[in-house]
Simulated scan of single mutants.
Amino acid sequence: MELWYTEKQTDNYGITAKIRETLVTEKTDFQDLAIVDTVEFGRLLVLDGMVMTTEKDEFVYHEMVAHPALYTHPNPKHVLVVGGGDGGVIREIMKHPDVEKAVLVDIDGKVIEYSKKFLPSIACELDNPRVEVIVNDGYMHIHDHKNTYDVIMVDSTEPVGPAVELFSRGFYQGIYESLKEDGIFVAQTDNPWFKAELIQNVNRDVKEIFPIVRVYCANIPTYPSGLWTFTMGSKKYDPLQVDETKIPDIDTKYYTPRLHKAAFALPKFVEDLCK
């Protein structure tokens, strides 16, 4: 008998993958959590029926959350990750030796626990001495830490359940206040095929707060539609003004110095959403 995992990404569309083994299923205090081992994508972390990360394509998302912002800011010493309990963004941040401290705040400690156990290649830097892991509400952490961080990265689920507030204007205002005077933030902002209105709303809200706002894209096969957007808000530094010849080659599989600016060249229909 064959077992298949299917994510219904819209009412009329989904993806499916053949399962080798179900490693864990649990209803945590905040969401339904599962980790399954698939033939095509390796182990999948699934929250509330949505694929969060997979062993095969995780590097795209995690690299593109971390490196564009860290190479735009000239001196990122203190970095915050909201969400991201699987540890992938933290792993990428740790490739930057100038970062003195990275704080990860995830509301669901079970995501951190099971990622360490079943996704060690992703969660491998969570015990790094430069990393502080806090199980708490990221929204409240932002509001309790003014003028604290050089870079803030929002690695959230889609805007359902505990992540709804992480797509609100009040949250972006809190991020602005939590950043230092030349700070940068970046957030995953879903896909333009099925969530065009979300991208428009986020872009509008962030533009009302940050003087520099840029949207960029990456290809992530297991995310809805495969085309994913990220929104960067900056108080001072423009990612399009970065001298790519000064970006060092680091151990990545997707992000490169040449891709830094290229990722901001949007397809016309995505560009139109950001006007």
Rank of each mutant, 00 (worst) to 15 (best):
T10S: 09
L126F: 11
Q188Y: 06
L266M: 09
W193L: 13
I35M: 12
D127F: 02
K261F: 09
K117G: 06
I247T: 08
N191C: 09
L3Y: 10
L104K: 07
D205V: 03
P248V: 05
Y254K: 00
V60C: 13
T16W: 01
K27P: 01
E21K: 15
D144E: 15
L80C: 09
D127L: 11
E21N: 15
Q9C: 06
L23D: 05
M153K: 05
H78T: 15
F30H: 15
V186R: 00
V206I: 15
I90Q: 08
E7H: 06
V105E: 03
K261Y: 10
L44F: 14
V215S: 13
I15F: 00
T28A: 04
E177W: 01
G174Q: 06
D144N: 14
F118S: 04
A34W: 10
L126N: 08
A263K: 00
N219Q: 13
H141N: 06
V82Y: 12
A218M: 05
R91D: 12
P162K: 02
G88D: 13
Y176H: 13
L179P: 05
K101A: 11
I112E: 02
I142C: 03
P192Q: 05
M94I: 08
V82E: 09
G83P: 02
A265P: 00
Y114I: 07
L47W: 02
G14E: 07
K116A: 02
D29E: 15
D57S: 06
H260W: 10
V105N: 04
A69K: 12
A102K: 10
K101N: 13
K77I: 05
Y255A: 04
I107V: 13
I175L: 13
E165F: 01
E7T: 11
I19D: 11
G49D: 06
D243I: 04
G233Y: 03
K56F: 07
I209Y: 12
E132H: 09
S168F: 01
E132W: 11
T16A: 13
T72P: 00
L44R: 06
L45T: 08
R43N: 02
P257G: 03
V135K: 08
H62N: 11
I93H: 04
S225E: 01
D155R: 07
Y71T: 02
T245M: 07
H143P: 01
E132Q: 15
E113K: 15
P162C: 12
Q173G: 08
D108A: 05
Q200S: 12
I247Q: 11
L44Q: 08
S115T: 09
K261N: 13
E100S: 12
A218T: 14
C274F: 01
G138A: 10
P211Q: 12
V89T: 14
D98P: 00
A196N: 03
K110Y: 09
E197P: 02
I142H: 07
L126D: 04
V51R: 11
A263S: 13
R20G: 01
Y223L: 04
L240C: 11
E125H: 10
C124W: 05
A123L: 02
F264V: 00
E113N: 07
K275Q: 12
Y71C: 07
P74Y: 06
V46Q: 03
H67M: 05
V89C: 11
R258E: 15
K235L: 07
I199N: 04
V270G: 08
Q241A: 14
V154W: 00
N201T: 13
